[in-house]
Amino acid sequence: MATGGRRGAAAAPLLVAVAALLLGAAGHLYPGEVCPGMDIRNNLTRLHELENCSVIEGHLQILLMFKTRPEDFRDLSFPKLIMITDYLLLFRVYGLESLKDLFPNLTVIRGSRLFFNYALVIFEMVHLKELGLYNLMNITRGSVRIEKNNELCYLATIDWSRILDSVEDNYIVLNKDDNEECGDICPGTAKGKTNCPATVINGQFVERCWTHSHCQKVCPTICKSHGCTAEGLCCHSECLGNCSQPDDPTKCVACRNFYLDGRCVETCPPPYYHFQDWRCVNFSFCQDLHHKCKNSRRQGCHQYVIHNNKCIPECPSGYTMNSSNLLCTPCLGPCPKVCHLLEGEKTIDSVTSAQELRGCTVINGSLIINIRGGNNLAAELEANLGLIEEISGYLKIRRSYALVSLSFFRKLRLIRGETLEIGNYSFYALDNQNLRQLWDWSKHNLTITQGKLFFHYNPKLCLSEIHKMEEVSGTKGRQERNDIALKTNGDQASCENELLKFSYIRTSFDKI
């Protein structure tokens, strides 16, 4: 039985969820670079991206490699990797027998973001014989899940209580170790020597080791999670996991709180800001991140802002960003909400898709409305799209047979046209069989910064309504002859009103 693990408890099935942008060198404390989270699957090609990484700022997932063999891993080693800020997950990587050479110096898994409450997941690794993470000293947050690894031993010899604050939620089941077939031998045991430290858990006094050649490092209890030197002297209180010299914040392997210019500090002093819960960055760093993602459509890219001495992905609820200094300031009234469309555009074809934009005031991208039916549609669209004030790209209304009016965009005031449909149009209306009105132009103002209007096959939309939009939106004169079809717009509506004058002759039985 794995020490510190839980057996036999019912657990939810383990679901495996399925960018080499360097964020800056980590400095003297770390020998390499800070790398983003990685999802490495199918083959070993991307694994080489770990070569210079000291910190993975995010998670590391290595999974679904069915053609790899043990010899493929023999020359692979990433000794610079010290810390993973989120979680480490391995799933069905064939041929991998140990992690001792792959990650010989991995010391800390912070667990800032977890995989279903777990910071370390080893699942269905069919050839893994031992973990071998002999320098792993601290899992700051989260638990361990090690399950269905039929060859995995050296679990009962690990004292997880020396690595985690609590072992109650560890789930370590259905491994070879369960069948008591392992016969784990710690260093020196074969020669009758006791080389590794022994600890007591559940009444068992057991030597602690990761492999037959690597003991588990056990520091004096007084050192807590700070770690200790090879001689057993406690590291500085700002260290986490390990250090090369005692009581020196510049000799830590990793930091308990924050890293700044080669030393570990309790908090980031001005003019620095907390970033990702582990390091200090200056304003320029946060500003660069903001600008890199301002026009990016890459998933996970955030326009970072500053709030409460932190550089964070977005302002919290009730705050909006001051564009001059990136500071989050309290909103006066309802907060603006910028919604970034991942692929640059979004099609609204149902109430469900409209709900995804609920509360958005600025759309960074283009909207395509293609709704053919739905219950209580006008009210639903207004509830979900009615706060949109600005669209950076274009607005396209296409084959939306259920629409009679666009009044559900009740606050839309600006279409920038930074991206144009077919390279020309910022407003595009095609084949809307029941569209009769755009907006009530006596109450609604709309500016279209650039781009043209396109109207074709809107049989109940009168040309007068379209011409009014040209005047109000500032697009009059931009359109070419064929942009607004004269014969297919309003051709099934009563669009022309003329005053009919009647004269009559009164007659009676005795007068003409």
Rank of each mutant, 00 (worst) to 15 (best):
29 L>N: 14
29 L>D: 00
32 G>A: 07
33 E>Q: 10
33 E>S: 15
34 V>E: 09
35 C>L: 01
36 P>A: 12
44 L>Q: 03
45 T>I: 09
46 R>I: 07
49 E>M: 08
49 E>N: 04
51 E>V: 07
53 C>Y: 04
56 I>G: 00
56 I>K: 00
56 I>D: 00
60 L>R: 00
60 L>N: 00
61 Q>F: 06
63 L>G: 13
64 L>K: 03
64 L>R: 07
65 M>W: 01
65 M>Y: 03
65 M>E: 13
66 F>K: 13
66 F>H: 08
68 T>M: 14
68 T>K: 13
68 T>Y: 15
69 R>M: 05
69 R>P: 08
71 E>L: 08
71 E>A: 14
72 D>G: 06
73 F>V: 06
75 D>F: 06
75 D>R: 04
76 L>F: 09
78 F>C: 03
80 K>V: 04
80 K>N: 13
81 L>M: 13
82 I>P: 00
82 I>V: 07
82 I>R: 12
83 M>F: 09
84 I>E: 00
85 T>G: 02
86 D>Q: 12
86 D>V: 00
87 Y>R: 00
87 Y>D: 00
88 L>T: 00
88 L>Q: 00
88 L>A: 01
89 L>F: 09
91 F>H: 05
92 R>W: 10
93 V>S: 01
94 Y>P: 14
95 G>N: 07
96 L>C: 10
97 E>W: 08
99 L>W: 01
103 F>G: 00
104 P>Q: 01
105 N>T: 04
105 N>Y: 06
105 N>V: 04
106 L>Q: 00
108 V>M: 09
108 V>K: 02
109 I>N: 00
110 R>E: 06
110 R>C: 09
110 R>S: 09
111 G>Q: 00
111 G>R: 00
111 G>I: 00
111 G>E: 00
112 S>Y: 04
113 R>F: 06
115 F>V: 13
117 N>T: 03
117 N>R: 06
118 Y>M: 14
118 Y>R: 02
118 Y>N: 04
119 A>Y: 00
120 L>V: 09
120 L>Y: 01
122 I>Q: 00
122 I>V: 07
123 F>A: 05
124 E>I: 00
125 M>S: 06
127 H>N: 03
128 L>E: 01
128 L>T: 02
128 L>S: 01
128 L>M: 09
129 K>M: 11
130 E>T: 05
131 L>R: 01
134 Y>D: 11
136 L>A: 02
137 M>N: 11
137 M>P: 01
137 M>F: 05
138 N>E: 02
139 I>E: 01
139 I>P: 01
139 I>W: 00
139 I>R: 01
141 R>L: 08
144 V>R: 01
144 V>I: 12
144 V>N: 02
145 R>G: 03
146 I>R: 01
146 I>W: 00
146 I>L: 13
147 E>R: 02
152 L>K: 01
153 C>I: 02
153 C>K: 06
155 L>P: 05
156 A>L: 04
157 T>H: 13
158 I>N: 05
159 D>Q: 13
160 W>T: 01
160 W>C: 02
161 S>P: 02
161 S>T: 11
166 S>G: 07
169 D>R: 12
169 D>V: 07
171 Y>R: 01
172 I>L: 15
174 L>V: 14
174 L>A: 13
174 L>F: 06
175 N>Q: 06
175 N>D: 13
176 K>P: 10
177 D>Y: 09
177 D>W: 08
177 D>R: 12
178 D>I: 05
183 G>H: 07
185 I>T: 12
185 I>L: 05
185 I>H: 06
186 C>N: 02
186 C>W: 01
188 G>E: 03
188 G>M: 15
188 G>V: 08
189 T>L: 09
189 T>H: 14
189 T>V: 11
192 G>W: 08
193 K>G: 10
195 N>C: 09
195 N>P: 08
195 N>S: 08
195 N>H: 10
198 A>Q: 02
200 V>M: 12
200 V>I: 10
201 I>P: 15
201 I>L: 13
201 I>V: 14
201 I>S: 10
202 N>M: 05
202 N>Q: 06
203 G>F: 06
204 Q>D: 13
205 F>A: 05
206 V>T: 15
207 E>V: 08
207 E>N: 01
209 C>P: 03
212 H>W: 09
213 S>N: 10
213 S>G: 12
215 C>A: 08
216 Q>F: 08
217 K>I: 15
220 P>R: 05
224 K>I: 06
225 S>I: 12
225 S>Y: 13
225 S>R: 08
225 S>C: 04
226 H>D: 09
229 T>M: 13
232 G>W: 07
232 G>D: 15
233 L>N: 14
234 C>H: 01
235 C>N: 01
235 C>V: 00
235 C>Y: 01
236 H>P: 02
236 H>T: 03
236 H>F: 02
237 S>R: 10
239 C>R: 00
239 C>V: 01
240 L>N: 13
241 G>Y: 08
242 N>S: 09
244 S>M: 14
244 S>N: 06
244 S>I: 13
248 D>G: 02
249 P>G: 04
249 P>W: 07
250 T>I: 05
255 C>V: 00
255 C>S: 00
257 N>P: 00
258 F>P: 01
259 Y>I: 15
259 Y>S: 05
260 L>W: 09
261 D>E: 02
262 G>T: 11
263 R>S: 07
263 R>I: 12
265 V>A: 10
265 V>D: 03
265 V>M: 07
265 V>C: 03
266 E>W: 15
268 C>V: 00
269 P>A: 11
271 P>T: 12
273 Y>R: 07
276 Q>C: 04
278 W>C: 03
282 N>M: 07
286 C>L: 03
287 Q>R: 14
289 L>D: 02
291 H>V: 14
293 C>A: 06
294 K>W: 13
295 N>C: 05
296 S>Q: 14
297 R>G: 08
297 R>I: 08
298 R>C: 15
298 R>Y: 14
298 R>F: 05
299 Q>C: 06
300 G>E: 04
301 C>Q: 06
302 H>R: 06
302 H>D: 11
302 H>T: 13
305 V>D: 03
306 I>K: 02
306 I>M: 04
307 H>R: 06
308 N>I: 08
309 N>M: 11
309 N>Q: 06
310 K>R: 10
311 C>Q: 02
311 C>T: 00
313 P>A: 07
315 C>Y: 02
316 P>N: 10
318 G>E: 08
320 T>W: 09
322 N>K: 03
322 N>L: 14
324 S>V: 13
324 S>M: 11
326 L>V: 05
327 L>M: 08
329 T>I: 14
329 T>V: 08
330 P>L: 07
331 C>W: 15
333 G>D: 11
334 P>M: 15
336 P>M: 04
